[in-house]
C-alpha cells in the first residue's frame, strides 16, 4: 500500500480540501442524495460497518495510531466511559457527564485521534468488574494524569492512599497533602477528578460526615461507599 503518498501526493491530491460549489450541470438532474434512495437501494448488510470498525481499531492499535482509545462499560453506577492513552487510563466518565461531550473534551485537551478500541481497556474493565463484584480492593493499572495539573493532581495522586472501605474528610486530605488550609481546593480537586472510581474521590466526605459532592451524583457516591462497606 502506498501509505505515505496516499494523502501527500500533490499531483493527485487537490490542495484545496474544501468542496467546491456545486456546478450548474448538477441542478438539472440532481439525484436524491438525501440518503433515502441510497440507503434503500445501496443497502449494507447489518454489522458490515461494525465489523470493519473492529478491524480498524485493531490495526490502529498495532500501528500506534490511536492517541486515545475508549470503550463503555455497564456498572452499578450506570454506564461508564473509559479512555486510555498509550501511557495509561486517562478518563473515567459517568453517563450524566454526556459521553459525546467527554470525547469532545478529550479531543481538544489530548488528541482528536480518538477511536473506540476496547482492547486497550481490557485490563481496567476486568478490574472494574471485580471491584463492583466486591472481589477487588485496589486497582493495578497505569494511570495518565494528563487532564489535571498542580494541586489538583497532587490531591488526586494522594487519593488512592485512602484504603478501601475507609473515608477521610476534605480537611484530613488537605492536611495529608501538606496544605491544611486548602480544604476548598481539595473539594475542587475531588470534583474535577478525571478518574473517578479508580482514583477514589468517593472516599472523601465533609467534616460533618455529609457526602459532599460527586461528579457521578450523590446516589453513585452512596452506592460505592455501601459496596465497600459490605465487602
Amino acid at each position: 500500500m502506498r501509505e505515505s503518498t496516499a494523502l501527500g501526493d500533490s499531483t493527485e491530491t487537490p490542495t484545496d480540501t474544501r468542496t467546491e460549489a456545486t456546478d450548474p450541470h448538477d441542478a438539472a438532474d440532481r439525484f436524491d442524495r438525501t440518503g433515502a434512495e441510497i440507503q434503500q437501494v445501496f443497502s449494507l448488510e447489518p454489522g458490515a460497518v461494525d465489523d470493519l470498525r473492529t478491524r480498524l481499531a485493531q490495526t490502529a492499535e498495532a500501528r500506534d495510531l490511536a492517541d486515545v482509545a475508549y470503550r463503555t462499560l455497564d456498572s452499578p453506577v450506570g454506564p461508564l466511559l473509559l479512555a486510555a492513552t498509550p501511557l495509561g487510563l486517562v478518563r473515567v466518565a459517568f453517563a450524566r457527564e454526556d459521553f459525546d461531550t467527554v470525547l469532545q473534551t478529550l479531543a481538544k485537551k489530548i488528541s482528536p485521534r480518538i477511536l473506540e478500541a476496547p482492547d486497550r481497556l481490557d485490563t481496567v474493565a476486568a478490574q472494574l468488574a471485580e471491584y463492583f463484584a466486591g472481589t477487588r480492593r485496589a486497582f493495578d493499572v497505569p494511570l495518565d494524569y494528563a487532564l489535571s495539573t498542580g494541586f489538583r493532581q497532587t490531591v488526586q495522586h494522594y487519593l488512592p492512599h485512602i484504603a478501601y472501605g475507609h473515608t477521610q474528610t476534605y480537611k484530613e486530605v488537605a492536611a495529608h497533602v501538606g496544605n491544611p488550609a486548602a480544604v476548598r481546593a481539595v473539594g475542587t480537586a475531588c470534583a474535577t477528578n478525571p478518574l473517578p472510581v479508580v482514583v477514589p474521590c468517593h472516599r472523601v466526605l465533609r467534616t460533618d460526615r455529609g457526602l459532599g459532592g460527586y461528579l457521578g451524583g450523590l446516589e453513585a457516591k452512596t452506592t460505592l461507599l455501601t459496596l465497600e462497606q459490605a465487602a
Binding site: 458490515a48 460497518v49 470498525r53 478529550l106 479531543a107 485521534r113
Partner: peptide, 16 residues
C-alpha cells in the same frame, strides 16, 4: 479537533 471516531460513525457507510 473533533474526535476521529465521530467521522467513522458518520461516514463509515458512505465510504463503504
Amino acid at each position: 479537533r473533533t474526535p476521529f471516531d465521530e467521522a467513522v460513525t458518520r461516514h463509515g457507510g458512505t465510504v463503504l
